[in-house]
């Protein structure tokens, strides 16, 4: 072991250098610069800017449009992440028990992960068109619902955008759970078979508790992903009508890169988003550690 420590330092440095430079220049430094710009009144077009301290932060606290974007994003996360986790888990459990045709089923259910969100958003834009003959309105008609202008209505625009996000997220959740299921020891499965534990009881008492670390990972990661929803909003609704489908990231884009190009203010909003994401990540890591420790205890028992 000691001899391994004696490797010349420059070799290790050479191996690490490209990655460290890349991350330093394009992730770490920009994050720090962003934190600085957040305290200025910089605009994208103006040549000069000055330090304004906490002005942007206080403006954010009293920005009704931001409050709406935050409410929209929280609602979006809830109606996307929860169903996606339930459906993705259900599909993974169902696919895991299939003996023949597994790889075909897997391929079909992986497809949404590879999908181009702009392309899918285009398709959803006419599936949910206001036209009474559009697919969504035709299906709604079967249930006696009058045609709806899905994307032009303040109460349906966000759910339609969330449907596109949830469609892809469920597929991602499926992928991760399928990998998670392979980590359940065969011995545990065999023991459950021998004891005749099947169906609901097996799911509740064996499979779900053993999958708990995967669930924590999926929930946190899926939430962080949905917090960053952008292109579906840009293509489907541009945040409208009346801001009803504006997510936080779309609002940051609008503040920084359109209108009066308020880069300083947009950076402050991005910084607040970073704080939220880091908090989520830290909480997720702690809960994940706890869940793993519990699983390790139960498997050895």
């Amino acid at each position: 072991m000691n001899s391994v420590f004696q490797r010349p330092g420059w070799r290790v440095a050479a191996l690490l250098l490209p990655a460290v430079v890349g991350l330093g220049v394009f992730t770490i430094a920009p994050a720090l610069v962003s934190a600085f710009i957040a305290g200025t009144d910089k605009t994208l077009t103006g040549p000069s800017f000055r330090w304004v301290g906490t002005t942007n932060f206080r403006a954010a606290l009293h920005d009704p449009d931001l409050a709406q974007a935050v409410r929209n994003t929280v609602a979006y996360c809830l109606i996307t992440v929860v169903p996606a986790v339930v459906i993705g888990l259900g599909l993974a459990l169902a696919a895991d028990r299939v003996a023949r045709g597994r790889s075909l089923i897997r391929l079909a259910l992986f497809l949404p992960v590879s999908a181009n969100l702009v392309a899918v958003a285009v398709v959803f834009s006419y599936i949910f068109s206001a036209n009474p003959d559009a697919l969504a309105n035709t299906v709604a008609g079967w249930f006696g619902i009058a045609p709806v202008d899905w994307l032009g209505n303040t109460s349906t625009a966000l759910p339609v955008v969330a449907l596109v996000g949830g469609w892809r997220l469920a597929s991602f959740v499926f992928v991760v759970y399928l990998a998670g299921l392979t980590t359940i020891p065969v011995s545990v499965r065999e023991a459950a078979d021998v004891d005749g534990i099947h169906g609901w009881a097996r799911l509740r008492r064996i499979t779900l508790p053993l999958l708990a670390p995967t669930t924590v990972f999926v929930a946190v990661f899926a939430t962080i992903l949905t917090l960053q929803t952008f292109e579906t909003v840009a293509v489907l609704t541009q945040g409208g009508p009346l801001g009803s489908s504006t997510t936080i990231v779309y609002y940051i884009y609008k503040a920084g890169f359109t209108g009066s190009f308020r880069i300083g203010y947009a950076s402050m909003l991005a910084l607040l988003l970073l704080v939220a994401v880091v908090l989520l990540g830290v909480i997720g890591a702690a809960v994940g550690r706890w869940a793993r420790a519990r699983v390790a205890r139960e498997v050895t028992l």
Partner: peptide
Amino acid sequence: LRFRGRAVLFAVILATLLVPPQITAIP
């Protein structure tokens, strides 16, 4: 490989995963 500061460096690299692409986009 084993070298001093490995754990710290790895933690820093992992931490960059949390930085949303939108925050780095502007700078």
